[in-house]
Structures are given as C-alpha cells and as structure tokens.
C-alpha cells in the first residue's frame, strides 16, 4: 500500500516540475523507449554510461536497427553531439519528485548534463518519501574519504532570469524522462 502511494506521490510531484514519467515493466522496455523517443524526435545519438554490458549490447542492437548512433566512451570528446542519455538513478525522493544520482563517473556527469534529453531509470523499490529518508544513504557516500559527486535532479533545467518568465532547458537537459521500473528488486 505504502509503495503504491510512494509511486503516486513520486509521479505527481515529478510531473508537476515538468518530468515526463512512465511506469514500465522491464529494462528491455526502457531500452526500447529510449530508441523510440530518439526516432520520434528525429535525434541521432544516444549515450548510456553506467548500464551493464549486457544491456549496452542490447541497446547497441536496437540502435543499429533503428539507424541511431550509440556513442562510445569517453564522451568528453563528443560532448557537443549527445542527443539523449539513458542512465540509472539511485533513488527517487517522492515528495519533491527528485532523482538522486551518484555521478562520480565523469561519463555519467557529461551524459546527464550535456544531453538534450535525459532518460532516467529507477526501480520503484528505490523510491523514498523525502530527503530525510535518503539522508543516511547520502551520508554514507559523503563520509567516505574518497571524492564524490552526487546530484539531486528535479525536472529539466530551468531559468526565470528574464522577466521572471519560466523557460526550460537553459544549460542542462531540455527534457527529463523518468522510467519507473516495476519488477526490479533492490
């Protein structure tokens, strides 16, 4: 019951800040979603840092048959040509519709910052109610002696710097898609 509520809250709050949310049933569906979205928007390239090699291979097959370019790492040299990025995120924070993404890897940072569209995959089991409920997990990261770069992402990039009029996609992604994957276990 509580899980259902969390999904509902997460969806409602994420949609309210402009995130496009879908519930899907598997990673395969997510890969297909990414490819279809790129085709629909007439985009050319995809990046998928952090996906395991099996999923990368499947995505490569899908890209090949759809005539899309799956970018190889390092992405830094192709920074100007990333249309869409597909990544996992670590947690969902329901009451603000926020995604938590451990982005220590430069590939993940570049992919999620420079892409026009960021598609985030999140197992529904990783949705928490509020920042208080991920505080311990975040602190575990921060308390390590190693460097870390952790992002809370809530909707697409936005600004209201000109006449206080909201405009989307000033420097970061113009669209943020959240795919809630139902059957994933933690």
């Amino acid at each position: 019951m509580e899980k259902k509520n969390l999904i509902q809250i997460m969806t409602e709050k994420a949609v309210a800040v402009g995130t496009i949310v879908h519930e899907i049933s598997s990673v395969s569906d997510a890969l297909q979603y990414a490819v279809d979205l790129n085709k629909e928007k007439n985009l050319k390239t995809l990046a998928c840092p952090g996906l395991d090699s099996e999923d990368q291979d499947r995505l490569l097959d899908l890209c090949n048959s759809a005539n899309l370019d799956l970018l190889e790492e390092p992405l830094r040299n192709q920074a100007s040509s990333i249309d869409t990025s597909l990544t996992w995120v670590n947690y969902g924070i329901a009451d603000t519709g926020t995604l938590m993404l451990a982005s220590d890897s430069e590939e993940i940072r570049i992919a999620t910052m420079l892409a026009k569209i960021h598609i985030a995959m999140l197992p529904v089991s990783k949705i928490r109610l509020d920042t208080g409920s991920i505080e311990a997990a975040l602190n575990d990261i921060l308390k390590k002696d190693s460097a870390s770069y952790t992002a809370f992402i809530t909707g697409p990039s936005r600004t209201a710097d000109i006449e206080r009029v909201l405009a989307i996609g000033v420097h970061g992604p113009v669209e943020l898609h959240l795919l809630l994957i139902k059957d994933m276990q933690p």
């Binding site: 603000t96 809370f152 809530t154």
Partner: peptide, 9 residues
C-alpha cells in the same frame, strides 16, 4: 526544491 542540488566532495 531547485532543479539541481549538487553535493561535491
């Protein structure tokens, strides 16, 4: 919350 909150160490 803002679009981005970033924790850098």
């Amino acid at each position: 919350i803002t679009s981005y909150v970033t924790w850098i160490k």
